[in-house]
Lab assay of single mutants.
Amino acid sequence: GATAVSEWTEYKTADGKTYYYNNRTDESTWEKPQELK
């Protein structure tokens, strides 16, 4: 099967917290998305 390329990108805020942003859905989350686990 084809490997899905994750749409999630990991970013850090100014105070060093990590969050994740999805370019396709324009969604952001503090929790690590399922695709990255």
Rank of each mutant, 00 (worst) to 15 (best):
T3Y: 06
D15G: 07
E35Q: 07
A2H: 14
Y20C: 01
E31S: 06
N23A: 11
A4P: 14
K17A: 08
E31T: 10
E27P: 01
E27S: 06
K32N: 07
T25L: 05
Y11D: 03
N22C: 00
T13P: 00
Y11N: 05
K17T: 09
V5I: 14
G16A: 00
T25H: 02
Q34I: 13
D15L: 04
K37V: 15
P33R: 00
Q34H: 12
T29W: 05
W8H: 01
Y20V: 00
T29S: 12
S6G: 11
Y11W: 07
N22G: 00
A4M: 13
K32R: 10
Y20L: 02
K17H: 08
K12F: 09
N22W: 00
L36C: 05
G1M: 14
K12N: 06
Y21N: 03
A2V: 12
Y11K: 14
T18V: 12
E27T: 09
A4T: 14
R24Q: 14
T29D: 03
Q34C: 06
Y11P: 00
Y20H: 02
Y21F: 06
A14G: 08
N23Q: 12
E27M: 07
T9A: 10
N23P: 10
Y20D: 02
K32D: 05
E35F: 07
A14K: 11
T29Q: 12
A14Y: 03
T9K: 11
Y11Q: 10
Y11F: 11
T29V: 12
E10K: 03
G16H: 02
K32G: 04
R24D: 09
T13E: 03
K17L: 11
S6Q: 11
N23W: 14
T13D: 13
A14L: 10
Y19I: 09
G1A: 13
E35K: 03
P33Q: 02
E35G: 08
T25S: 05
S28F: 15
A14I: 10
G16P: 00
S28Q: 12
S28G: 11
K37T: 15
Y21H: 11
V5E: 14
K32A: 07
Y11T: 05
D15S: 07
S28R: 15
Y19T: 02
K37P: 11
W30Y: 11
T18A: 06
Y21A: 03
R24F: 15
Y20S: 00
Y21D: 03
V5K: 10
T29G: 03
N22E: 02
K37W: 14
W30T: 11
N22M: 00
Y20F: 06
T13L: 04
E7N: 08
T29I: 07
D15P: 00
T3V: 12
E10Q: 07
E27L: 06
E31Q: 09
V5G: 12
T13I: 01
G16W: 00
E27V: 09
T29M: 07
E27D: 04
E10H: 02
N22L: 00
W30G: 06
E27H: 05
R24G: 08
S6H: 09
T18Y: 09
T29H: 06
Y11A: 06
E35N: 09
T3N: 14
G1V: 13
Y20T: 00
A4I: 14
T25N: 05
Y20A: 00
E35Y: 06
E31G: 04
L36P: 05
S28H: 14
E7T: 06
Y21L: 04
E35I: 05
A4S: 13
L36G: 05
T9P: 00
N22D: 04
N22Y: 02
E10P: 05
A14E: 11
A14D: 10
T29E: 04
W8P: 01
L36T: 05
Y19S: 02
W8T: 01
T9W: 08
W8I: 02
Y19P: 02
S28W: 15
N23I: 10
T3I: 13
G1K: 03
Y19E: 04
T25G: 01
A2P: 13
S28T: 15
T3L: 13
T25I: 03
T9M: 11
K32L: 10
T18P: 06
A4H: 14
T3A: 13
K32H: 05
Y19R: 03
P33T: 02
Q34G: 11
Y11G: 06
A4E: 12
T9I: 14
A4R: 01
P33E: 03
T9Y: 09
N22H: 02
K37H: 14
A4Q: 14
K37Q: 15
G1D: 13
R24K: 15
A2N: 12
Y20I: 00
T18N: 06
N22Q: 01
Y20E: 02
K17M: 09
A2M: 12
T3S: 13
Y21P: 04
G1H: 13
S6K: 08
S6V: 09
E35R: 01
Y21M: 04
E27F: 04
R24I: 15
E35H: 07
P33G: 02
L36W: 10
G16T: 00
Y11I: 14
